[in-house]
Every structure is written in C-alpha cells, then in structure tokens.
Computed example of a mutant assay.
Amino acid sequence: MAANKNIDVGFTSSVTVKVTDKMVHQFAELSGDHNPIHLDDAYAAKTRFGRRIAHGMISGALISRALVECIGGGGVYLGQSLKFVNPVFIDDTITITIKITAVRKEKGIATVETNVTKDNGDMVVKGEAVIMVGRDMEHA
C-alpha cells in the first residue's frame, strides 16, 4: 500500500475486524500459546469470563495491520505499549483506531495513539506506537 502523504498530527483512521475462532487457533499455532482460556470451551466456561477469549496479542497484531492500511507500508515499528482493559471474545468485531499525536519529520518518526474497541463501545486495548514512517513520507 502506498504511503499517505497527508499524514500529520491529528490524522485519525480505523480498521474494523471480526476476531474468529480460526484466527485464535492460527495465533495459538504461530505463538505456541495454547492456554486453555483461548482454546478449550469447557475450561473457559469455568473462568471469570465464562467463555473463551482471544489472545490479547491478536489485537496487537491487528494494530500493526491498521498502521499499514491507514498510514502505508514501508514503515518500521520502534515501540508499542499495550494495556489490555477488557477481553475480546470469539466472533467479537473490534475496531482499531489510530491517531497521530506527534511527528518528527526530520527523523521520519511518528507517535501514534492505538486504541481498540468492541462494537458495543467497550475499550479493549489502549496503547501507543512509535514508528519510523516509510521513505515516501519522510519529506511529506
């Protein structure tokens, strides 16, 4: 995806994704995190959540996706903070919203607020990313 040269402080965009059972199983295979809270219905039914929850880092991975889809490819993550505040259940639809809060154009560095919410408005993840923007944006 081409870089968006109109990116500056205040730029906001979002991506909406349904978190599926298939995604959870694929993430478990990729990460090696086979915690039964994510994979075992009977186990999860006995927890405080009452059912299976998605791995928190699926939301983290989808933040990475949103950065590329909304800002453009070619950039590099320099850092990401994440605070998990509510669970994502299987088949929840979540919206990843990014908002640029600072840009150091001379360095090609941007700070981005990265929040994830469910369709019902519940905040799921609060975070902040620091990214090196793609080469096309360095002089935008």
Score class of each variant (00 low, 15 high):
Asp92His: 06
Asn86Tyr: 10
Ser64Leu: 03
Lys105Cys: 05
Phe49Val: 07
Glu69Ala: 12
Phe89Lys: 11
Phe49Ala: 07
Ile90Cys: 07
Met132Lys: 15
Ile90Glu: 02
Ser13Asn: 13
Asp91Ala: 09
Thr12Arg: 15
Ile71Phe: 01
Val130Cys: 06
Lys118Phe: 06
Lys118Cys: 05
His38Val: 01
Val68Lys: 03
Asn120Asp: 15
Met23Ile: 07
Leu67Tyr: 04
Ser64Lys: 04
Cys70Phe: 00
Pro36Asn: 09
Ala61Trp: 04
Ala44Ile: 03
Leu30Gln: 11
Val15Arg: 12
Arg135Trp: 07
Ile63Trp: 00
Arg104Met: 11
Met123Cys: 11
Ala66Asn: 01
Thr93Val: 14
Phe11Ile: 01
Ala3Ser: 15
Thr111Arg: 12
Gly121Arg: 06
Met137Asn: 11
Thr111Ala: 10
Thr101Arg: 04
Ala129Ser: 15
Asp122Cys: 05
His38Cys: 02
Ala61Thr: 08
Ala61Met: 08
Gly79Met: 06
Met123Lys: 15
His38Gln: 03
Val15Pro: 08
Arg52Trp: 00
Val130Gln: 12
Met132Glu: 10
Ala54Asn: 00
Thr101Lys: 09
Gly50Ser: 08
Leu30Trp: 10
Gln26Ala: 14
Lys18Pro: 05
Ile63His: 01
Gly73Asp: 11
Asp119Ser: 14
Ile53Leu: 07
Gly121Gln: 10
Thr101Cys: 07
Asn86Met: 03
Ile96Asp: 00
Lys83Thr: 15
Ala45Ile: 04
Asp91Trp: 07
Lys5Cys: 15
Ala42Ile: 12
Ala66Thr: 05
Gly56Cys: 02
Ala45Tyr: 08
Lys107Cys: 04
Gly72Thr: 03
Leu82His: 12
Gly72Arg: 02
Thr111Gly: 06
Arg52Ala: 00
Val76Ser: 10
Thr111Leu: 08
Val125Asn: 09
Ile7Gly: 03
Val103Lys: 13
Val68Ile: 14
Ala110Ser: 11
Asp8Arg: 14
Asp122Trp: 03
Thr111His: 09
Glu29Met: 08
Lys46Glu: 14
Asp91Ile: 08
Gly121Asn: 07
Asn6Ile: 02
His55Gly: 03
Gly75Arg: 05
Asn4Leu: 10
Gly127Cys: 02
Arg51Ala: 13
Ala110Tyr: 08
Ser81Phe: 00
Ile37Pro: 05
Asp92Thr: 08
Lys18Asp: 06
Gly73Ser: 14
His139Trp: 04
Ala140Leu: 06
Gly56Tyr: 02
Glu29Gly: 14
Ala42Arg: 12
Phe27Thr: 07
Val112Trp: 01
Arg51Gln: 14
Lys46Cys: 05
Gly108Lys: 07
Ile7Arg: 02
Ile109Asn: 08
Asn35Pro: 04
Lys18Cys: 12
Val85Lys: 13
Ile53Asn: 00
Arg51Lys: 15
Phe84Thr: 09
Ala2Met: 12
Met23Pro: 05
Tyr77Phe: 15
Leu78Cys: 11
Met23Val: 05
Leu30Tyr: 11
Thr16Ser: 15
Glu106Arg: 14
Val124Thr: 10
Thr95Cys: 10
Asp8Thr: 14
Ile131Lys: 06
Arg135Val: 13
Lys126Glu: 14
Ile96Gln: 04
Gln26Ser: 12
Glu128Gln: 15
His34Arg: 14
Phe27Met: 05
Thr12Val: 13
Ile58His: 03
Val85Phe: 06
Thr101Met: 04
Gly10Thr: 03
Glu138Gly: 13
